[in-house]
Amino acid sequence: MSLDMHAIPETTDWNTQSIQSLDHFNIQHEKITRCGLEIHNIQVEQLTTLAQLDDLYQHFNIFFPPNIKNAGLIRQLEFFTGRLAAKCALHDLNLQDCVIHQGHQGEPIWPDAVIGSISHVSTQRLCCAIAYAQNHNCADKTFGIDIESKRCQSFFQQNDEIYHVFLSKDEQAALANIGFQKPDLYLLVFSAKESVIKAFYIKYNQIIDFKLINFNGIVGDFIYFRIHPVSSLKNISVTKVHFFDTDNEIITISCI
């Protein structure tokens, strides 16, 4: 879906004379509804100069933290794309003028009474990001989201050692008996665990390790995991992660 630039919230304070037209910036926006959750998907073609990106940060009134300013062009574009997706999500809550700051661990600081999640991925040609935002008081479930490029399948295929980072030996044995192609399956499980980690952090304000999230099976378009007890959380719980793919990406949505 091509982007209607009027559908993306802009700051009214920015002097648009310094950015004569947004037409030459290839930005696409799509709203995806899955699991009762509205997810905003933003895609931005790679830019060639930091000055172009700085114009976009200012035009959309997106907070530009010092650690991101000092990073390279790709990291700056990833941050911008993620925050633009988050701004679109806040627009649905009539909070488009809110500025999303950055926490000590790099997490987005949402407005009061709002919870949300952001994920991004980039290739040499394109940066993609997804985000959602909900009123905390109206949310009976906590979601985490993740997006990964299908091109990463080749990375998993060439680097068997990376499996040990996010999978136990028992999980690797269980996955070996499932009728998925190995790189596709491992990338999918990695993304699903990333989404669980995000949902867990949003709900409990704790970071959980990959190895405490144990693969428990795949049924249809859901992956099931068993979460082991963490600190004061005594009950072992089972969570499920919905997955689907676009032309170039895999998206996972966890629910706790």
Rank of each mutant, 00 (worst) to 15 (best):
Ser2Tyr: 14
Met5His: 14
Thr12Arg: 09
Trp14Ile: 12
Thr16Lys: 15
Ser18Ile: 13
Asp23Ile: 09
Arg34Met: 10
Val44Pro: 01
Glu45Trp: 09
Glu45Asp: 14
Leu47Phe: 05
Leu47Gln: 03
Thr48Gln: 15
Leu50Tyr: 09
Leu50Glu: 12
Ala51Thr: 13
Gln52Asn: 15
Leu53Arg: 06
Leu53Ile: 09
Asp54His: 14
Asp55Cys: 12
Tyr57Thr: 05
Gln58Ile: 05
Phe60Ser: 01
Phe60Val: 09
Ile62Phe: 06
Ile62Tyr: 04
Phe64Tyr: 15
Asn70Ser: 13
Asn70Pro: 00
Gly72Arg: 09
Gly82Ser: 12
Gly82Cys: 10
Arg83Thr: 07
Ala89Asp: 02
Ala89His: 02
His91Arg: 12
Leu93Phe: 08
Leu95Glu: 01
Cys98Phe: 09
Val99Pro: 00
Ile100Asn: 00
Gly103Trp: 05
Gly106Tyr: 11
Gly106Asp: 11
Pro111Trp: 01
Asp112Glu: 13
Val114Pro: 01
Val114His: 01
Gly116Phe: 02
Gly116Asn: 01
Ile118Gly: 00
Val121Met: 02
Val121Gly: 02
Val121Thr: 15
Leu126Trp: 07
Cys128Pro: 00
Cys128Ile: 06
Asn135Val: 06
Asn135Gly: 06
Asn135Phe: 12
Asn137Pro: 00
Cys138Ala: 13
Ala139Val: 03
Asp140Asn: 14
Gly144Tyr: 02
Asp146Glu: 12
Glu148Lys: 08
Ser149Gly: 10
Arg151Met: 11
Ser154Cys: 04
Gln158Tyr: 08
Ile162Phe: 09
Tyr163Ile: 02
Leu167Tyr: 01
Leu167Phe: 07
Lys169His: 14
Ala173Cys: 06
Ile178Tyr: 10
Lys182Trp: 03
Asp184Trp: 08
Leu185Met: 14
Leu185His: 07
Tyr186Asp: 00
Tyr186Arg: 02
Leu188Phe: 12
Phe190Glu: 02
Lys193Val: 05
Val196His: 01
Ile202Ser: 13
Tyr204Ser: 02
Asp209Ile: 08
Phe210Trp: 04
Lys211Gly: 03
Lys211Arg: 11
Lys211Pro: 01
Leu212Pro: 00
Ile213Ala: 05
Asn214Phe: 08
Val219His: 15
Phe222Cys: 13
Tyr224Gly: 05
Tyr224Gln: 12
Val230Phe: 10
Val230Asn: 10
Ser231Phe: 11
Ser231Glu: 14
Ser232Ile: 11
Leu233Ile: 15
Ser237Asp: 11
Phe243Ile: 08
Phe244Val: 12
Phe244Met: 10
Phe244His: 14
Asp245Glu: 15
Thr246Ile: 06
Thr246Asn: 07
Asp247Ala: 14
Asn248Lys: 11
Ile250Thr: 10
Ile250Pro: 00
Thr252Ala: 09
Ile253His: 03
Cys255Arg: 12
